[in-house]
Amino acid sequence: MNQAKVLFFSLLLIACGKTEVREPIIYEGPLREMEDMEMFYSQNSTVKVKMKTPLVHEFKNDDKEFPEGLYLEFYDIAGNLESTLTADHAFYFKEENKWRGRGNVVVKNVIKHEQLNTEELFWTPADQKIFTDKFVTIREQGNVIYGEGMKANQDLSDFEIKHVTGVIEVNED
């Protein structure tokens, strides 16, 4: 029995003598998660942007991820709906005050009945511009314009497409 006790304590001392130091794990994931969010941005008591999303992840640096998509409505000075933007996935970069939509990104000008489709689009709220270097399709009253890269106002009221191709109706009256 004494040999068993000596062997047990010897193994216990050997096992206790080895300490393993591990580096702390730094969590990089979201700090908060919000579901079924609807938010309004207003200026001078007038709604400018309405945002709806099923899920938001908020990070330590105030960046936000919208992994299940995003829907935005843009309103004019009188509070009338001007345009909408939808994306399958979105991300807000706080430091740059810039948004990125990915997947099936669609911008519609509801007044002019124009529509932009692309796979990635950036929006800068400060100057109310949208842009991309990806392939775009713009449909406007009878015309379909294709291109690689574009810049536009957020309501598609004025746009510039790089590397343009497409079908444009011409009236010969």
Rank of each mutant, 00 (worst) to 15 (best):
V56M: 12
S45C: 02
E35D: 12
K129Q: 14
G103N: 01
Q43P: 04
K48F: 01
V49G: 00
L31V: 14
T46I: 15
Y71A: 07
A78N: 13
Q141N: 15
A87H: 03
S10V: 09
V164G: 01
Y75M: 01
E65N: 10
C16H: 14
Y75F: 10
D127P: 04
I77T: 08
V144G: 00
N80G: 04
F74G: 01
K151Y: 12
D127Q: 09
L116W: 04
K98E: 15
R32C: 05
S83C: 03
L13V: 12
K50Y: 07
Y92W: 11
K64S: 09
V170C: 06
F93Q: 09
G147M: 05
F8V: 06
Q43G: 05
G79Q: 03
C16V: 15
R100A: 08
H89F: 13
M34W: 13
T132K: 03
I138G: 00
H113W: 09
K18P: 01
M1R: 07
R22L: 14
G103T: 03
T84G: 00
A4E: 15
I138M: 01
K112L: 11
R22Y: 12
E38W: 02
T137M: 12
L85V: 03
L156N: 04
S42P: 02
G69N: 04
L121D: 04
E35N: 14
E28D: 15
I161Y: 01
L72Q: 05
E119Y: 11
F74N: 02
E35H: 15
S45N: 15
W99H: 06
T124M: 11
E20K: 15
E140K: 12
P67M: 05
P30M: 02
P30K: 04
E82G: 00
G103M: 03
D62S: 12
D62N: 13
L81W: 01
K108C: 02
G142T: 09
L72E: 07
S45E: 11
